[in-house]
Amino acid sequence: MAKRLNNLLRGQYAALRAYSTPERSGRSFSYGNRTAYPLRVRLPSSVCLRRSLRRALPLDLPATVLRWLYANWRKFWYALRQLSGDDAYERYLAHHSACHANTAPLSRKNFFQHEQQQKWSDIKRCC
């Protein structure tokens, strides 16, 4: 259970990520002049589900969940910061040093002002 949810959170779920290449599956289909290879879209593999059921059911679930929360609180915190835009400046600095290292980056305050001005010049919220 813990491992499965963990993988899910990291967006690395192997079964969902696996897609077939032509070599692997031999299946392909074309629309117009393009050829596309189908996603092998699968539910989280049943092996994993079975294992997680076996793990989760005999134990008491709340303890498992709590343990999992405790083991992953750093990731939650990271996800929360990223979702809310709290770490936007750090990400900007990383991007800046990677791509425009020869110019001086904006200060935190200036960056935040630019960011907000840009964010709200487009449709951001709906009904």
Partner: peptide, 23 residues
């Protein structure tokens, strides 16, 4: 590094849902 940024899909999901969910 600003509006075009490859982002983890759970984060994109969060942004997208927050934007579409209104009254």
């Amino acid at each position: 590094g600003r509006d075009y940024i490859p982002t983890n899909r759970w984060i994109v999901f969060g942004h997208h849902f927050a934007a579409i969910a209104g009254p």
